[in-house]
Amino acid sequence: MITRRDVPVGEYVFHLLEAGNPAMDTVLWLHGSGPGANAETNWSRALADLSRDLHHIAPDMIGFADSTHPDPAPSSASAFAQLRTRTLLGLLDELGLERVHVVGNSMGGIIGLAMALAAPGRIGRLVLMGSGGAPVTPTPDLLKLITYYSKPTVDALADLMRAMIHDPSVLGTDLEKVAETRMERIQRPEVRRSHEATFAVDIPGLYSPEQLATLEHPALVIHGREDRIMPVEAGQYLAQHLPNAQLHTLPNTGHWTQIEQPERFAFLVRSFLAGKL
């Protein structure tokens, strides 16, 4: 069962999904970016599949969906990433969580790595799925995601959703209707403001080999071979430079492994977090 609540952290408020047994170790699930991105669309299937394993929390990061949207927004992408990292560590303090495992998708992987660099003792195991953080050339579809609000239409959103997965039929036969249901959230002015600030001025979270080499956490890197948003070379880079990482490249899979290959994703995450992989 997934529950929802709001948790204040200083001047900010996190909207939080929660599942599993609070008496067990906690897994922090960090969603990716994009117009209208939130924890529920990213993680609801995975949380349902893994709800009997451990304790799970999945916040809308600051500047996304139903959590606080700073006004004014941070002045650069790097500044926004630093704010998200700092407030997530504050969320752990507020919840009384000394140490958590982290699962990060795309931008969520960038922030998860930032948390591990800032407070290595507070992070246990790392799962990076379709993660950013590598110095790779932005793909055309990533650029469409970044610049979505230059033409924020239903058709453009449906095209972006098609780019997220290898087999678009996974999301239904009429992606335009699925996209239309998400437009109300996407059109909120604060959501647009935060999205544009997320990618302003610079590129957040490009980690050097030297930085990654300091992270001795056990790491599972999962990447779809056909990922059109974050190319598979990004996962290969992270797995090469994180000293205790293993790489699982899934064929016929795009950016959203947890949606396109849910059973395999749940098996890999469950096994890894239990120390069996």
Rank of each mutant, 00 (worst) to 15 (best):
R52W: 07
T41L: 15
M24E: 15
L17W: 08
R52A: 12
T41Y: 12
P8I: 11
I2A: 11
R52Y: 09
R122Q: 06
H15S: 14
D6A: 13
M61G: 00
L126S: 02
G121K: 00
T26A: 14
S78T: 13
R52P: 06
I2D: 06
A48N: 09
L47Y: 00
A118R: 11
F80V: 02
A19G: 11
T26I: 12
N42K: 12
T3S: 13
G104R: 11
G112M: 08
S76D: 01
V127R: 03
L54C: 11
P70R: 01
T26K: 11
L92P: 04
G20K: 07
D53K: 05
D25P: 14
T3R: 15
D93G: 00
E18S: 15
R122E: 03
R4I: 07
A77Y: 03
L16C: 04
S33R: 10
T41F: 12
E18W: 13
L95S: 03
H69A: 09
H69L: 00
A116F: 03
L16V: 11
R125I: 05
R122K: 08
G121W: 01
L83W: 01
M115S: 06
G112R: 02
L54D: 03
A37H: 09
R84E: 05
G121V: 05
A19C: 14
A37E: 04
I110G: 06
W29R: 08
G10Q: 12
T41P: 08
A73D: 03
L89F: 09
L113W: 11
A81F: 10
V7W: 10
H101K: 10
